[in-house]
Design a binder for these strands. Structure first.
Lengths: 170, 170
DNA sequence: ACTAACCTTTACGTGAACGGTAAGGTTGTG
DNA sequence: CACAACCTTACCGTTCACGTAAAGGTTAGT
């Protein structure tokens, strides 16, 4: 039960991972095939494999990674270069993944996971910082809103326009 | 006072608003003069006035507006086109501002403030939406982190690698 | 009045992030 | 085996958001 769990055997059992072709991935994520190839060109991701005829084959993890990239781009507003930094050298990760699958050295597995954990934590920190700055912007906007409602209240009360501290009319 | 209100006349009264030149504004905000002129070209802002020799003159409100634009760009990650939408036609606002200063019709003043209020509230809504998506991304990243720490705990406890649900190694 | 340090407009250049198309190879279905 | 519908690389085009001169005019200090 422990000496026989060959990591390569998964090709034999399971349902043989349902690989997707680039167009299917693109449709699923709302991207174009061109965009996905461009990201690969930048080193942001590498398909799990290639078919005999050199077609790119994506697995669920690839799709997940791409979805994350899209989130970093659209939701977090990072540049592709920054995303590259956050995700870090894909090549190194691929090697790690392979090493992880083939090694049974617990210390090595530990080290690999440690690295992954450090990366994820840097990602979280970056996202948190973005969130903080966004929150600050919201607070400022709400302050402006407050100024305007105050002003409106003054008008309703027939009071004078007030000396207007400095920042009005947005 | 109304037919002759030359924008330069303000030099006469008040403490002569401390107008800034483009370079000073740029330095204060960490932008380049080119960027500021470009934003003007796009209709994102218009300096409060011009000198006799056609130098752009910025007041505190202009600087505030520019800081907001920079925030929308850097912190919120909006495109300049989107920022233009959020800020809306600068020309119209300038006209409103002038009308606001010259009119004493309370109803009109009210309408102008109402408009500004509506704009600010749309801005807040946009920012909140961005914030929500960012928060969701953070939650996902934290989930990944949790997976990794779990995995690490398994290794420390000498347990088996676990079947790994689907998304590991970030 | 001279001069350095600003400013003006105009215009062409650039890197990022793709879009589009050409010229050809691959897959899967009848 | 034909054939439509996909895929491949390669390369040129485009939009956005500026950078970078060029050719002058303005301001402020001496």
């Amino acid at each position: 039960m422990s000496h026989l769990d060959d990591p390569a055997t998964q090709t034999a059992n399971a349902v043989a991972a349902p690989f997707l072709r680039i167009q299917e991935v693109a449709a699923a994520l709302g991207l174009t095939t061109r965009t996905i190839r461009y990201y690969e060109e930048l080193g942001l991701l590498e398909p799990a494999g290639r078919s005999g005829g050199d077609y790119r084959q994506y697995d669920a993890d690839d799709v997940e990674r791409l979805r994350f990239i899209k989130g970093l781009r659209d939701d977090a507003g990072f540049s592709l270069a920054e995303i590259g930094q956050l995700l870090e050298d894909e090549e190194a990760r691929t090697r790690n993944r392979d090493r992880f699958r083939t090694t049974s050295d617990t210390a090595e597995r530990r080290g690999i996971i440690d690295d992954a954990l450090a990366r994820v934590e840097r990602q979280i920190a970056s996202l948190r910082e973005k969130e903080g700055r966004l929150t600050a912007m919201i607070a400022e906007a709400e302050e402006r809103r407050q100024h305007l409602t105050d002003h409106l209240a003054d008008l309703d009360a027939g009071r004078e326009p007030a000396p207007h501290t400095h920042g009005r009319g947005q």
